[in-house]
Amino acid sequence: MNSVVCIAQVPDTEARIKIADGRRIDETGLKFIVSPYDEFALEEAIRVKEAKGGDVTVVSFGPDRVQQALRECLARGATKALHIKGESGSADALGIAKTLAAAIRSVPHDLLFFGKQGVGTDNSLVGPMVAELLGYPQLNVVTHLEVGEGKITAHREIEGAEEILEASMPAVITAQKGLNEPRYASLKGIMAAKKITIETKTLPDLGLQESDIHHQRVTVVALELPPEKSGGRKIDGGDAATAAKEILKYIREEAKAL
């Protein structure tokens, strides 16, 4: 049972975002991490490998810094890594999906894992787009997965409910928090990862036209920070009844919520 896990490297969620030239984030001094939802995707793929054997190939499209993220995934238990070099920041979600789909075609796979969204760009688009480009079923926002013979069963989170879906393989799964508890890299894992060569490819290697990937369909024309909130009134809540009365007054008169 072979799995591919597509990962995105994103700014640390603790980081403050600064803007460069009004269009993109300033990467100076910014710490990058594996997108948190991708960690659940990776963990699930490793568990499938541990139960059924096979490879876990991590794939990422981006500048050279993404090799660090791929290395971290290898340390946690992925067995192969593929880096598609390019400025993923100037590609829209479909451009990224086309790139990943083209790369995945040459990697043996039964299951394709993604995080349900890349934390930061927060698009939630790439996984289902890859599913469409490859003609696979998609199981989106998955909190539980069972891999059987030739088919999988997944629990999908929807508003106030949960769907149980059954799909044939190959299939695309996008991971939600709660799917599992991701492991940390062990020292042994870190040492073993150093011996694995990260394969690299370019867009032309994949038979793709740069012009179909970059600056197409959806382009960012401006990036700005939200207006700084100054904080409002602060009151002493020492007396609970008085505080409750004040809050109620605010809710009724200003929020007009009752």
Partner: peptide, 23 residues
């Protein structure tokens, strides 16, 4: 409190039940 329009400095275990009753 930096983003709150109304900030109440106090004990939620007292204030929340009082607010629930008031609501």
């Amino acid at each position: 409190f930096r983003v709150a329009d109304l900030g109440v400095v106090g004990d939620l275990f007292q204030i929340i039940p009082a607010l629930t009753e008031a609501v």
